[in-house]
Every structure is written in structure tokens, then in C-alpha cells.
Design a protein around this nucleic acid. Structure first.
Length: 240
DNA sequence: AACCAGGACGTGA
DNA sequence: TCACGTCATGGT
């Protein structure tokens, strides 16, 4: 019987083997030449200064909705399609018919629902998020996002963490599988319970929060995608 | 050719 | 509350 791995030790292990992840990728927004050169497929390892403008905030928000239960490659196709169709802006998304948006994001799947969600999200950004002068508490901002139909906990936390630079931990299917395999959480833990476990343990540091979720996804893709989960995961499961 | 993907929502029990 | 069906394309 071995002692349980702490969440801080788990971070160290993952970071040592995978390094900086450079999330959230910025792929399509206008960039200076030096920035373009720095980006690897939109990833910007070690640079936490993104998003640098409203256009990049929009790209992250769109990506967060589009990637719901969807392969990132399909999301890229949808983002590129939006750009080609001149729909990659707050104004055009608000003024284009939803059917037309849906068609443009077809490759990302669930396109009818996601087109509606994107409309509602962009409406929120324009009418409430950007105009607001006083700094709002993260938990309140989170609740506002959750009120938007089509935005659930993971999408809200992705937007908070990567687009709005709030320390809100993102929990996804990989996170649950990995922590379950490591016996850190019980299988019946809720989303909020898992999120809380991270937030009460980690230092409140944006870089750590951003890297940690990205690292879990990277490791999850490698070892927790196919059942039985965690087989051949010698990094986290030395007993194998 | 199944199975999976960086989920969320509506429904009935 | 909660298990279960639905939404849907493209990659492997």
C-alpha cells in the first residue's frame, strides 16, 4: 500500500514530463510578425500574456464552446471556416443569422446548439462583460456564465481561466479519470467537489492553474482515452 | 467500422 | 437528485 499522491506532487510529475503546454492556443487572431514566429500551432509555452486583445478573447470563447465533447482538430476547422466567412468578430456573430453560423461551424458537431450558445455568449460579452466598469468577483462572474444556456461548468471555467485570467480550476473527463485511477477522489465526486479539491490545495497562481488543466488533458490523451483507463501509465502508476 | 472527442441539456422516475 | 437519451462531425 502506497501513500496517496498529493495534487501538488501530481503537478510536479506532469510538469517534469511534459513541460509548458502553452494553453489556450491562439490560432487565428491577428498577430504581429514576432508573435506569429513564436506560436507553435497557436500554443505559446511559457507565455501567459495571452489573450492580448478582444479578438483573442473571442477566439478562446468560441473555442471553448466549439470543443465541447469534440476533437480539437474539428474545432480548428470550424474556427477557420468562421474566419473565411467573415464571421470571426463580435459584430458579425451578433448580426448573422444563426442558421448561417451553424453552417459555418458544422465540422465541430452539435452545430445547431453551438451556434445558439455562441450567440448568447457573445451577447453576454458585449452587453455585460465588457461594458462593466467595476471588477466583479470570480464566483459571480462564473454564475453569470452558467446562466447562459449551453455554457456548463467546464466551459465556464475554461473561459474564466484562459480568456478572463481568473483562477478557476477546470475539471474535465480526463481529470476525473486520472484522479479516480490515482485514488485521489471517489468515483461519485461531483464537478464542484473535484474543483474544490484543487482550489483548496493549490497556490492561487494563474500559471499553475492554466498549466495543470492542460497537463491533465495531455496526459489524459496519452493514457486515459481508451478503456481500461490508465493501463500503461507508468508515470502515475509505478506499480504496473 | 466502431469508437472517441478538451460537454450540456431535457426528460422521466 | 440522477441515470439516460439526444445533439453530430471528423479522426483513428
Amino acid at each position: 500500500m502506497q501513500a496517496k499522491l498529493s495534487l501538488n506532487s501530481l503537478f510536479d510529475l506532469l510538469f517534469k514530463s511534459y513541460g509548458h503546454q502553452g494553453w489556450w492556443p491562439i490560432l487565428l487572431a491577428r498577430l504581429s510578425k514576432q508573435e506569429q514566429h513564436k506560436l507553435l500551432n497557436g500554443y505559446h509555452p511559457g507565455d501567459y500574456k495571452y489573450p492580448k486583445n478582444k479578438e483573442q478573447i473571442l477566439e478562446i470563447c468560441l473555442g471553448a464552446v466549439l470543443t465541447q465533447n469534440t476533437n480539437w482538430k474539428n474545432v480548428i476547422l470550424a474556427l477557420q471556416s468562421l474566419k473565411r466567412s467573415k464571421m470571426f468578430s463580435y459584430e458579425s456573430i451578433l448580426h448573422t443569422e444563426v442558421e448561417k453560423i451553424a453552417l459555418a461551424i458544422k465540422s465541430a458537431g452539435y452545430y445547431n446548439q453551438k451556434a445558439q450558445t455562441i450567440r448568447r455568449l457573445v451577447t453576454f460579452l458585449q452587453k455585460i462583460y465588457f461594458p462593466r466598469t467595476k471588477n466583479v468577483e470570480t464566483s459571480i462572474l462564473r454564475n453569470e456564465l452558467l446562466e447562459i444556456k449551453g455554457i456548463g461548468p467546464e466551459t465556464a471555467d475554461c473561459i474564466l481561466l484562459y480568456a478572463f485570467h481568473r483562477c478557476s480550476f477546470v475539471v474535465d473527463a480526463y481529470t476525473r479519470r486520472i484522479l479516480t485511477a490515482l485514488d485521489i477522489i471517489d468515483v461519485d465526486f461531483t464537478y464542484d467537489q473535484i474543483k474544490e479539491r484543487f482550489e483548496e490545495t493549490l497556490v492561487e497562481d494563474l500559471g499553475v492553474f492554466q498549466e495543470y488543466h492542460a497537463l491533465l488533458v495531455e496526459h489524459g490523451k496519452n493514457h486515459y482515452s481508451k478503456k481500461p483507463y490508465g493501463i500503461n501509465d507508468q508515470l502515475l502508476n509505478p506499480k504496473l
